[in-house]
Simulated assay, not measured.
Amino acid sequence: MTSLKAYQNDDGGFGNAIEPDLRAPNSQPLYMEFALRVLYDCNIKDEELSQKACDYIAKHAVLKNGIPTIFSSSANYPRAEHWNNPLSAEPSFSRLTGLVGLLKWQGIKHLWLDKATEICLSIRKFTSIRVYQRTYYRQFLSLGRRFPKLRTFSSRIFTIIDFLL
């Protein structure tokens, strides 16, 4: 945890090149996902870190559109060629859904997170799932085991996702 927290900036986000393909020191949604994924993969829950992360995401996400993978300011720093794609700086509902799922897994209480969860449950958002987005939706929908409201919904969507692939 000490190593991971070293990458967390004062704004609650993560930076300082926690993901090696982008060397920006400022917080990026990509870095946030990377940090939350490390916690998930290691089965570590940290309320303080997650509350700060949620505050950061709430400040930068637009619930109707999502959150970019990286901010355009990252262009000022060394980065791998694949991050030069202009779509990386466009809001992504898929990215937001994955972040919401990882934050919900942390078990934190946050008003914005409750609202974001409800929006992520909107069935119309799942009508155009691309193959690479499957991971984000599975992160979010895997919460169905712990949250009864998601249980029926997630089983229907898993069927749709698997059919689309």
Results as ranks from 00 to 15, higher is better:
1 M>N: 13
2 T>L: 14
2 T>A: 14
4 L>E: 08
5 K>L: 15
9 N>L: 14
11 D>S: 08
12 G>F: 05
12 G>M: 07
12 G>H: 05
13 G>C: 02
16 N>L: 10
17 A>N: 08
17 A>F: 01
18 I>G: 03
18 I>N: 00
18 I>V: 11
19 E>G: 01
19 E>T: 06
20 P>W: 10
22 L>V: 14
22 L>M: 14
23 R>N: 12
24 A>H: 01
24 A>Y: 01
24 A>S: 11
25 P>N: 15
26 N>C: 07
28 Q>W: 02
30 L>M: 13
30 L>I: 00
31 Y>H: 12
32 M>C: 15
33 E>W: 10
34 F>T: 11
34 F>M: 09
35 A>D: 07
35 A>W: 07
37 R>V: 01
41 D>R: 12
41 D>V: 06
42 C>W: 07
42 C>Y: 10
42 C>V: 01
44 I>Y: 10
45 K>F: 03
45 K>R: 15
46 D>H: 04
46 D>R: 02
47 E>W: 01
48 E>V: 10
48 E>R: 08
48 E>M: 06
48 E>Q: 12
50 S>W: 04
51 Q>A: 05
52 K>L: 15
53 A>P: 05
53 A>Q: 08
53 A>Y: 03
54 C>E: 08
54 C>V: 09
55 D>L: 11
55 D>Y: 11
55 D>W: 11
56 Y>P: 05
59 K>C: 11
61 A>Q: 06
63 L>S: 06
64 K>N: 13
65 N>F: 12
66 G>A: 13
67 I>D: 00
68 P>W: 04
68 P>L: 05
69 T>L: 13
71 F>P: 04
73 S>C: 10
74 S>L: 06
74 S>C: 12
75 A>Q: 10
77 Y>K: 00
78 P>T: 00
79 R>H: 15
79 R>M: 14
81 E>V: 08
83 W>I: 01
84 N>Q: 10
85 N>D: 15
89 A>Y: 10
90 E>W: 02
91 P>Y: 09
92 S>I: 01
92 S>Q: 06
92 S>H: 07
92 S>A: 05
93 F>T: 04
94 S>Q: 02
94 S>N: 00
94 S>W: 01
95 R>D: 00
95 R>C: 02
95 R>M: 13
104 K>N: 09
105 W>A: 09
105 W>L: 09
107 G>M: 13
109 K>W: 00
113 L>E: 04
113 L>H: 04
113 L>M: 09
114 D>S: 15
114 D>H: 14
115 K>N: 14
115 K>Q: 15
116 A>F: 12
117 T>P: 02
118 E>G: 02
118 E>T: 12
122 S>G: 00
123 I>D: 03
123 I>P: 04
125 K>W: 03
126 F>V: 02
128 S>N: 14
128 S>M: 05
129 I>G: 05
132 Y>W: 14
132 Y>H: 13
132 Y>S: 09
133 Q>R: 02
133 Q>M: 10
133 Q>C: 07
136 Y>E: 14
139 Q>R: 12
140 F>E: 04
141 L>M: 13
142 S>I: 00
143 L>H: 06
144 G>T: 09
148 P>S: 15
148 P>L: 12
150 L>D: 00
152 T>C: 03
154 S>I: 05
154 S>G: 08
154 S>M: 08
154 S>E: 09
155 S>N: 12
157 I>Q: 08
159 T>D: 11
160 I>M: 14
162 D>F: 06
164 L>E: 06
